[in-house]
């Protein structure tokens, strides 16, 4: 029961900053800066966390339980659904950081930073990862 409650809380915390694929995408010329992530929950059906957010929440729980392999697999599933969500790349980087793989963590952090666009929270998360992985 306690585990379920914790998982729900995690889902809520992650989905608060989830990229919602239902939001219309900016269709300006392709060289304009178009923030990929929106930072808001948008019009998801009431109570439903986005699929990506749920998977990342699972990944976090698995990471907390020390199973980095499973955590990475869950976050990869989220990435297959939303490959351009900067935050999910940061999350995967956090798993690699926990494994002590600084090189991967750094590469993933830089990828996340490039994908963050104008989303300052996503940008900050990616920068934090890069800093912890020893990058600048």
């Amino acid at each position: 029961m306690l585990r379920h409650t914790l998982l729900l809380l995690l889902v809520a915390s992650v989905s608060a900053c989830a990229y919602n694929p239902m939001l219309p995408q900016d269709t300006e010329p392709q060289v304009e800066r178009t923030p990929e992530t929106t930072g808001e929950i948008g019009e998801a059906p009431s109570g439903a966390a986005s699929a990506g957010a749920m998977l990342v929440a699972e990944g976090r729980a698995e990471l907390a339980a020390g199973d980095t392999g499973k955590a990475a697999a869950s976050i990869e599933r989220a990435l297959r659904i939303e490959p351009r969500n900067s935050r999910w790349w940061t999350e995967l980087g956090n798993v690699r950081l926990a494994e002590g793989d600084l090189e991967q963590a750094l590469a993933l952090g830089r990828k996340a930073l490039r994908l963050a666009g104008g989303d300052s929270a996503a940008r900050a998360a990616a920068e934090a990862l890069i800093a912890r992985a020893g990058g600048r």
Partner: peptide, 8 residues
């Protein structure tokens, strides 16, 4: 096949 809300 993964099905989720918002999938095209």
């Amino acid at each position: 096949i993964e099905l989720y809300v918002g999938l095209e």
